[in-house]
Design a protein around this nucleic acid. Structure first.
Length: 292
DNA sequence: TACCAGGTAAAAA
DNA sequence: TTTTTACATGGT
């Protein structure tokens, strides 16, 4: 069985830039200058996915899976993660004449955000990141991953819903989570395992419906819903306006430098519809690369 | 040492 | 119905 497939992304896509932009973000991924490596699950089984540029003009990406998976599964997984269906040209046309975002979009030409392999990963990640600093959340999550995930060639496949559903509150508290968050994560995992919740249903929903779907899940509020929509689903128009980091970011680029309120963020991003979330991502990357 | 950090659900008023 | 509270670790 062949273990590689070729992807043909729509429009511009600078893989090296996109890797640089997210360097140091996650644990299930590792970034080298020209190679994206991620521990993903295909059909529940952990495997290593590696993506590199196969050709320019026309741009083609090669995705390799170890162990090899059915071609249709490899394609579906890689296209989802790499966001090949997103055509940046329409976004660039929209922001070309706009102050701040226009020049930044031009300087980051070809930048895309990778998605997480599964919405479950993103949902659990969002729960861990509630209220406490990203650094604290990272170390808590890392303990959880190394205890209950699976090693994949130097990376860690995120714990499966089955693995987390079987844990006790104490198991997760011992990783550093609050009792409340432990309940959220175990409850979410159990619903997925027993089949009463299918997060992938959101893939075919409107932004609004998907947001409501999220918020109906115990442990996911408005912030987590928006966070999951933009980062997990890759919805280009979604802005987590409740997000502390984003409030500071938008205040820096489009305000007086002070942190904005939630309504202020919403208002400031309004002209960038239907690419508000993508625009915010470009600002975040510009900040990470040029102002830190 | 405090205090804040990319929130949320449940209790109390 | 609206307001207040408890919560975990890491950085400064």
């Amino acid at each position: 069985m062949t273990k590689s497939i070729i992807l043909e992304p729509k429009g511009p896509y600078d893989l090296a830039l996109s890797l640089r932009a997210i360097a140091g973000f996650g644990t299930e991924t590792r970034e080298e200058p020209d190679l994206y490596r991620a521990a993903v699950r295909v059909g529940g089984k952990p495997c290593l996915m590696q993506v590199r540029e196969a050709s320019r003009k026309p741009l083609r990406l090669e995705a390799t899976f170890q162990p090899a998976q059915p071609p249709a599964k490899m394609r579906e997984t890689a296209e989802w993660i790499m966001h090949t269906d997103l055509d940046l040209r329409r976004f660039y046309r929209l922001v070309r004449e706009r102050p701040v975002v226009g020049p930044i979009a031009k300087s980051l030409y070809g930048l895309k955000a990778m998605r997480t392999a599964s919405l479950f990963v993103m949902a659990v990640t969002a729960i861990t990141e509630q209220q406490i600093s990203l650094a604290a959340a990272y170390s808590i999550r890392q303990r959880m991953i190394e205890r209950y995930g699976e090693p994949v060639d130097g990376l860690w496949a995120f714990p499966s819903p089955e693995a987390l559903a079987a844990l006790s509150i104490k198991d997760l508290k011992d990783c550093g989570l609050s009792g409340r968050k432990a309940e959220y994560i175990i409850g979410l995992s159990q619903r997925i395992v027993e089949g009463s919740l299918e997060l992938d249903e959101m893939k075919s929903m409107s932004d609004e419906d998907a947001r409501n779907f999220c918020m109906a899940i115990r442990g996911l509020g408005p912030w987590a819903a928006d966070y999951l929509l933009i980062r997990g689903l890759g919805r280009a128009d979604v802005v987590p306006a409740e997000d502390l980091g984003l409030q500071k970011l938008i205040g820096f680029y489009m305000g007086n430098g002070e942190r904005m309120t939630t309504p202020q963020v919403r208002e400031a991003m309004m002209p960038l519809a239907p690419y508000r979330g993508l625009a915010a991502f470009y600002l975040m990357v510009d900040y990470r690369l040029n102002h830190r």
